[in-house]
């Protein structure tokens, strides 16, 4: 409905402005000068736009081939930790640990939390090792992985605290061609440009340590 009101408003605006000029003195040559000025101004905008360094960044930096990231969960679940490329390790914590019990305080796994995986079959002794794996996240061709905050981990006495990371808010502006252009290229206005990547907090605990957690995991 608001669209209809908007259209009626525009229709009234156009009609009045055209009819006004029909009956009220409006020197035609002034309008012609105005129109020429407007076109020249727009052409200048085009020129400036292409001279702008930011405008041509895409050409300077061709989209690099996004590598296929491995499926972390599967690799971690099946114990193929070695298979994971070191470049996906974002953060690593190692604590010496000699107690026989450990309590893990982690935020809920759902919502915006990070997946937490606990592994006990690892041959570690007197050590807790926590690794934060992250595969790259992209928006279009921009790698935003580094903008993402890793979770915070703290070991105090017999409790391992995992703190939910801050939420990273990223705002982008993008240009999209006008709809008749989209019609020909078949592009939709909102292309799916996201690739979230995967984030896993992998906790390795010696198998002789008893684990208690605040959640189901």
């Amino acid at each position: 409905m608001s669209v209809i009101i908007f259209i009626i408003f525009i229709v009234a605006l156009v009609s009045i402005s055209i009819l006004l000029q029909r009956y009220v003195n409006s020197y035609g040559y002034r309008v012609r000068a105005m129109l020429s000025g407007y076109v020249i101004f727009l052409l200048l905008c085009v020129l400036v736009f292409f001279l702008l360094p930011t405008a041509n960044r895409e050409q300077e930096k061709p989209a690099k081939e996004k590598e296929e990231a491995p499926y972390l969960y599967e690799l971690l679940e099946t114990g193929q930790v070695d298979q994971i490329n070191k470049q996906y390790i974002r953060e690593k914590w190692e604590y010496p640990y000699e107690a026989t019990d450990i309590n893990i305080q982690a935020p809920d796994n759902d919502a915006e939390g990070v997946t937490v995986m606990i592994n006990t079959s690892n041959g570690l002794e007197n050590e807790v090792r926590i690794t934060f794996y992250q595969t790259p996240a992209y928006v279009d061709n921009i790698d935003i992985s580094k903008k993402v905050y890793p979770p915070n981990v703290k070991l105090s006495k017999e409790t391992l605290h995992i703190y939910k990371p801050e939420v990273t808010e990223v705002e982008y502006a993008a240009f999209t061609p006008e709809f008749p252009f989209r019609q020909l290229t078949g592009k939709s206005i909102l292309d799916d440009l996201f690739e979230h990547g995967q984030q896993v907090l992998y906790i390795q605990i010696p198998d002789n340590v008893r684990i208690s957690t605040n959640s189901l995991y």
């Binding site: 000029q21 029909r22 020197y27 040559y29």
Partner: peptide, 9 residues
């Protein structure tokens, strides 16, 4: 006459 034009036009 259309008001866009002056008399001489």
């Amino acid at each position: 006459f259309n008001s866009s034009l002056t008399l001489s036009e």
